[in-house]
Each structure stands twice: as C-alpha cells, then as structure tokens.
Design a protein around this nucleic acid. Structure first.
Length: 732
DNA sequence: TTGTGGTGT
C-alpha cells in the first residue's frame, strides 16, 4: 500500500494568472459580488448592440460566471427588442450544447422575467417542448435547432439566433455556424428586395469563452466583439517539477497531501474512465482507514456519466457541514471523468487535481473504425478544469504534468465535426436544400475525403444521388432519402426501417433501432457478474444481438402491463437498466410518429425473425464480415481482419456471415452489435457496392506499391499496417 | 474472451 508522501513543493503564495480572461483588459475582480457582470454592464451591452445594429453578426466573449446566458436575451427583449430588429417581431433562439442547461436556464429566466415557463420564456429540447407561438426567448439544444432548420432552413421564426458556448464546438453548433451564415445572407437579400413585412433580417449573436476570437472574426468578416469579464476567483496553478509515470498514484498522494496540509475545501480529481475511477476510490478508502483520527474526516465519491442519477446527485450535493469527530468538517473528494468539466458543476470545490488526460473517440471514415483512447487534453480543457476550483472562492489547481509539457499541448480540442461520421449531418444538410455540401461554409472544414465518404455512403444507402456539374459536386436527395432524413438516427438504421416495409416488420425494426439509439439495457455489476449473465441468458438468441434487444423489449413491454413497482422488481431481478429502456421507449414513440406522419406502413412479423434480419442486412450490408478458417473474420468491403466482440451472443457460435453495427479498436479490432445473415442476402443488396470497393482498392494498390499496401492486399490486420507507419485508410 | 470519455435529434 502506498504511504502518503509529498509530491508538490511547499505552498507558493503568489497566485498566478489563472485563466485566459485574466489577460483581457476588461477583467478585474473588484466587482460587487451580488451583481452578475452582465447586469453591471447592461447599459454597455445594450449600447454595443445598438451601435452595431446594422451588423448581422456580433460576438460577445466572456468566461464562466458572467451571466451572459441568462441576462443578454433579457436585455435584448427589455431594452431594444422593439427597434433593434427590422420587420415583424418573432423569437430569439438561444442554443445550448446540453439539454439540462437549456431547461434550467429557461426556468431561471422565466422567473426573472416574471412569466410562466413556456410563455414569453420557454425551452425546446427533445421529448420536451415548453414553448408556444408567443414565446419571445426560446432556449433550445443546438441539435433541436438543426432539426427545425430541416423544414425551414432560413429560420424565419427567429429574429435572432444566439449560439452559446460556441468555443465548445459541438457538432450541431458547427452546423449552425455555417447554416446561420448562409441564412443571414439570404434573409438580408430577401428583406432588401422584397416584402419587408414578411421576413425580417436574421441577426446572429455568438457567445464564447475567450479563445479563437480572431478566427471567428475572420469567418464572420470582422464581426464586432464585446468583452465582458467573468466572475471567478484566482486559482493558483501548481505544476509537477518533473513528468510522472503513474498519474493515478500521484493523484492519490496529492489528495492526502492536501488533506493533511491545506485549508478545508473539497477536492475534484480528473481521471479518464469508470474503471480507473472506481479503482482509485477503492484504494483511497483503504488508505483513509489508516489515517490518524483527526484526519479521518474525508470521503470519496466517484462521478461519471454512466452512474445513476442518484449516485450523481450524491457526488454533486454539498458536503454536510455537520461536525465530524467533534470539530473538523468533512472533506469530500470527487473523482471524476470529464463529465465534471462542463456538464456537471460541483459546489464547494477548492482544489482541483488534473491528470491532464481524457478518453477521446476517434473515427476513421475510410474504414468506419472507431477508437477510444486515453490522450492528453488541450490547453483549453486544462483551463476549464482549473476554473472548477475558483467558482466560489480562491482555489488551487494541481497539474500532474510539467509546465513545459502543458505548453506543448494543442490549444483547443479537435472539433467534433472533424472526428465523427458525417453521414447523419450531411443528410440533414442536404435535406435543407444545400445542394453543394462540399461548398458548405464550415468553420472548420472536414477533410474532403470524409465528406465524400459520407456522400458515397448515403448514395449506396439510396438516400441521394450525386453528379459533378461544372467542377462542383451536386447532390440531391431521393424520395427514400427524404424519408430517411426524418428519422433522428444514423441513416443506415433509417434505411433498415424503410426496408422493413417490404418484409412486414416495421414495428420490430422501430424497437431495435430505438434500443440501439439508447444505452445498453444490460447492467453488469462487477460484484455479481455471474448472476447478471445468468439473468441475461433468457433473452439470448442464436440469431444475433438485435434479436436479443427485441427479446428484452418484448419482456419489458409485457411487464409494463403490470404496475411500476412490478416493473422495477422485474428490472432489478434481471439486471436490466430501466432508465435506458424507458428512454428507448421514448425514442421508439418518436420514430413511430415519423412513420405515422409519413404514412409508412406499420406491420409486425410476430415470431418471424428472419424478416427482421433481412431488413437489417439491407441497411447494414456495408458492414458485413465473413468468417475465416481460424475463427477470425474479414470485412467484406475493406478486407480488414476483425474479431467478434466477446460480449456478443454470436461470439461462441461464430456464424459464417454477419453484419455489424460498430467496428471498434480496443484490445483488438472488434465488431459489435452483430446479426446473423445469409451471404446471399448481402450479395444481392450489395453487389455493386462490393465491386466498386474492390475496384477502388485495386486502383489504390496499383498506385502504391508500399509494403503496407501489399499487407492490405493479403488481408492482414491493420496492426501489421501500422508497423509501417501506415494504416488501412491510406491504402483503401 | 470484453469493457463504457462526453454530448445530442
């Protein structure tokens, strides 16, 4: 067992500049604490907006705690709404990357505004719309606004779109950056030329933390910028004098050092994942047992998104200030993933310990492969973590890396739009009437290869057609594509639903696709793994994991005829996560509504699971794999060696041919969410696709005679290719 | 024979 030791030099008294906002001229910390900075600057904000009344885009920059999200929309409605916008008065949309934020901010603003939530001030998030036609300020998730744009891409319902937390660069915020840019130009032209009563110009307000402002100004042709100081307290930064190998161990030593030497205040530790966190919590509790009685006032709580709401609440709720051991107060140590970076705010934190790492998902369009790996975070993320120590009082951030290391890290994380499968977004954008998706004004343009891969994939799925007109790629959605765009799921699953019409099993496919859109219904607690596996056995199938999901759903639905209590008991006995199933139910209802609206036949196949598998094969044919003699598999299109994931119900039976939902590299290159299919089915639906892929591979190989290409030709694993410093993408 | 960073329609 480790012994608590000293990892950091003695306490330094000088507070260093803590966040980038300390450098902005407007920043000072002598503000009256009862007022939010924006309230103090209200007249300046109003003046700024009035001065730039003719600008279609303005930028407001501010860090945590300025109150910009709650106050600025109110300033717009209170002070200048009447004369600020030309044309008829409609709504202000304020987008948020997270639903909880949209809901909670709207609730607070409705109170301040003195109206009932859902009237002048409201919100709109998936499954929950609290707004009406008279709503003036509508908080919404960015994804929700993208959805709305699909039917009205010029966003005529709004006078102004406020994009909040732009610096986070969420996928949908990036889509909106491009879309609103296009819409504002079009609306301006429309307004100038035509009926001024029918359509007002569209104003855009970007709200961001202090970063990347110059690039943003360039993108928006020198948009005016207003800086507002945030309200945070100074945070002292302490770096490691030398690099550490074992950051978990170092984090533990730091925790106990702080506990021994520093003032009261909770500690927030940033690690990378559930397993690592549970392990550290366990070891900390062990060490705490041997602390002297006067130091026993310490407790450890894990925090990650996979926890139940109750467990998350336990981590977030304020430490009971009640005396412990007669006099000392309890110190709480929250050991968390990056969920505590932005999504969850924890009161009472005075110390942050930052491992400097996080798990990131990387997607490769050429192979459809995902990798989830631990990587160094960006400087912006490090500042975000640091800021968590200064919300209520001055704090300290212990960085488990050297200053020299930190200075070498990238300034910003890679935006999501550059590291995800673009097919869903692309179909949405095309359905808005954007015919030349390669010319869409992305703030950060995805690699053309990735965009083209998404276009190709959508074409193979029958969602669109593409052609080249005077050098530009022009695409158009097909009738099926228009239907597919209606479903809020990956287009390949939308295609499965559409194919289910022919096989008379749309009800079953709705269930399966809804279940795939939600987190797994299975709970596998480490302590009772055998019991859980035994309980799950009754849902098993030799036809694949999709049929297993269907079985779970049917059991759940039959249970639901009973009462809530019975439902809970059933879930607990069967190691089933009820929350995830209830979410799947909501998704299913939404998908079903799309079918009703679009007059898509709803039919059920009963026990005929062949029809179900056939439908799946026709949407997932691009993700097919065949068994090799040694029990491994090879993907039919890109000829990569892959392995069935051991958690799949087909792991043992190893059928000759499967389609899969995801291809992910962890210990090996695994395929998951497997469905047993006949090779004939795949050939029938994917013949042209496989021919085209084979031809493309041959062309690439002809052009490249590197050893990597030869290895790829033999169908070796991409491991072998990586030895050459290449990967499968470079040869396919 | 494995494993789930985090969002969202």
């Amino acid at each position: 067992m480790m012994s608590p030791g000293m990892v950091f030099p003695a306490k330094r008294t000088t507070a260093q500049a803590n966040t980038p906002d300390a450098e902005t001229p407007a920043n000072n910390r002598t503000t009256a604490q009862q007022l939010l900075p924006v309230q103090q600057y209200a007249s300046e904000v109003a003046e700024f907006l009035r001065t730039h009344k003719s600008a279609s885009v303005v930028i407001i920059v501010s860090d945590t705690g300025s109150g910009k999200t709650t106050q600025i929309p109110q300033i717009l409605t209170d002070k200048i709404f009447d004369d600020y916008f030309g044309g008829p008065k409609r709504k202000i949309a304020v987008t948020q990357p997270r639903r909880v934020a949209a809901v909670s901010v709207a609730t607070r603003v409705a109170q301040e505004f003195g109206c009932k939530l859902g009237e002048e001030v409201g919100y709109s998030v998936r499954f929950d719309d609290m707004s009406n036609p008279q709503t003036k300020i509508k908080y919404m998730t960015d994804g929700m606004l993208v959805r709305e744009a699909q039917t009205a891409w010029m966003l005529e319902e709004y006078n102004m779109i406020i994009l909040d937390e732009v610096h986070e660069r969420s996928l949908h915020t990036d889509v909106l950056l491009a879309l609103t840019k296009k819409a504002s130009v079009r609306r301006r032209k429309f307004f100038d030329r035509q009926d001024k009563e029918a359509c007002a110009p569209l104003k855009i307000l970007l709200m961001s933390a202090t970063m990347d402002i110059e690039r943003m100004r360039t993108f928006w042709k020198d948009a005016p910028v207003l800086y507002i100081p945030g309200k945070t307290f100074p945070v002292t930064i302490k770096y490691m004098p030398a690099p550490v190998d074992d950051y978990t161990h170092t984090a533990m030593v730091a925790v106990f050092q702080i506990h021994r030497e520093e003032d009261p205040g909770d500690i927030l530790v940033f690690l990378t994942g559930q397993e690592e966190i549970e392990e550290m919590v366990r070891r900390c509790r062990q060490v705490a047992k041997s602390l002297p009685p006067q130091q026993a006032n310490i407790q450890f709580v894990p925090l990650y998104a996979g926890l139940t709401n109750e467990a998350q609440m336990r981590a977030v709720s304020q430490t009971a200030a009640s005396a412990h051991n007669g006099h000392a107060t309890m110190r709480k140590v929250i050991i968390s993933t990056n969920v505590a970076e932005t999504s969850i705010t924890i009161p009472g934190v005075k110390y942050v310990i930052d491992s400097g790492r996080a798990k990131h998902k990387v997607f490769t369009s050429a192979t459809g492969m995902e990798v989830l790996k631990v990587e160094k975070i960006s400087q912006a993320q490090a500042w975000q973590r640091t800021g968590r120590a200064g919300r209520e009082q001055a704090g300290v951030c212990y960085r488990l890396y050297t200053e020299a290391d930190f200075n070498c890290w990238p300034q910003h994380p890679i935006p999501e739009i550059l590291r995800c499968n673009l097919s869903t977004v692309l179909l949405q954008v095309v359905e808005m009437g954007i015919e030349k998706p390669l010319a869409f004004p992305f703030f950060d343009r995805p690699e053309e290869e990735n965009l083209q891969a998404a276009v190709d994939q959508l074409e193979w799925l029958g969602a669109l057609t593409q052609k080249v007109e005077s050098g530009d790629l022009v695409v158009e959605t097909t009738a099926d594509g228009k239907l597919m765009a209606q479903f809020p799921v990956d287009p390949k699953y939308a295609r499965c639903i559409l194919r289910a019409r022919a096989h008379r099993c749309t009800e079953e496919l709705l269930t399966i696709v809804a279940m795939l859109s939600s987190d797994s219904p299975f709970i596998n607690p480490a302590a009772s793994r055998t019991a859980a596996a035994a309980a799950h056995e009754k849902f098993s199938s030799n036809e694949g994991d999709h049929v297993v999901l269907l079985n779970v759903w049917r059991a759940f639905r039959d249970q639901k005829k009973g009462n809530v209590k019975a439902s809970r008991a059933w879930a607990s006995q069967n190691y089933i996560n009820l929350r995830n199933l209830e979410r799947a139910e909501k998704v299913r209802n939404q998908l079903r509504e799309v079918c009703v609206r679009k007059k898509i036949d709803l039919s059920s196949c009963g026990g005929n699971t062949t029809a179900v598998r056939r439908s799946l094969s026709e949407g997932l044919f691009m993700s097919a794999a065949e068994r090799l003699p040694d029990g491994s598999y090879i993907t039919v299109d890109t000829r990569q060696t892959v392995f069935l994931h051991p958690a799949s119900c087909l792991f043992k039976t190893k059928p000759a041919c499967v389609v899969y939902g995801t291809l992910i590299r962890t210990a090996k290159l695994y395929v998951r969410e497997l469905c047993l299919v006949e090779a004939d089915w795949i050939d029938a639906v994917g013949k042209e696709y496989f021919l085209a892929m084979r031809q493309r591979m041959a062309e690439k190989l002809a052009g490249k005679t590197t050893s990597a290409a030869v290895v790829a030709e033999k169908g070796e694993t991409s491991d072998a290719m990586e030895v050459d410093g290449k990967n499968a993408d470079s040869v396919i």
